[in-house]
């Protein structure tokens, strides 16, 4: 089920798309295990888990800060692979791991720089110098919770909102990307 495909005719024709081809795993460090978890993450992904609101790219995997000692691991869906189970196994004992692929709808606006409308749309300063590639913000839009990040390569903004709100959020986003 695609929120955009079902409710707009131009879902993929525009620079606003819904990302349906990823799995999202939420990991949270166990108490006292932050350092060893990071060590393991570096061994696994080749990068550190960001300790500030940042998103880092690691060989096709995007690691998004999601609160203190919490991250979203966003991976491309692959047939025959269970990303969640693999991560749960990898981080067993050092992190709590849950599959949240279905928790949020992720919309993407492909804009290298924020449009004027996007810039004024949220209580987050989207100015190019203030919200840089790789920056993350957990915030809300008209009372709808959202995690927004700018891709580390600067090509797009992703908005992850609770799935059950995503029709309203999609409506809002279509306006905001204009």
């Amino acid at each position: 089920m695609s929120e955009l495909a079902n409710h707009t005719k131009t879902a993929r024709a525009s620079d606003l798309i819904e990302r349906n081809d990823v799995t999202v795993t939420n990991i949270a460090a166990r108490r006292g295990a932050r350092a060893s978890l990071d060590e393991l993450a570096r061994a696994t992904f080749g990068v550190s888990l960001p300790s500030t609101p940042k998103a880092v790219e690691a060989g096709g995997t995007l690691i998004v800060w999601a609160g203190p000692d919490q991250w979203l691991i966003i991976q491309k869906e692959e047939t025959g692979r269970d990303h969640y189970s693999e991560l749960a196994k990898t981080f067993n004992g050092l992190a709590s791991v849950i599959d949240v692929t279905e928790s949020r709808t992720i919309f993407r606006i492909s804009q290298a720089r924020p449009s004027p409308v996007l810039s004024r749309s949220m209580g987050i300063d989207f100015h190019d110098a203030a919200f840089k590639p790789g920056d993350v913000a957990i915030t809300h839009v008209s009372h709808l919770g959202v995690i927004v990040w700018r891709l580390p390569d600067g090509t797009a903004y992703d908005f992850a909102c609770a799935r059950t709100y995503s029709r309203d959020f999609g409506d809002w986003l279509r306006k905001a990307k204009a």
């Binding site: 500030t52 609101p53 609160g67 203190p68 209580g123 913000a137 957990i138 915030t139 809300h140």
Partner: peptide, 10 residues
């Protein structure tokens, strides 16, 4: 301390 400056409506 985690997210930065935000308005009180958050």
């Amino acid at each position: 301390p985690h997210c930065g400056l935000r308005s009180n409506d958050e």
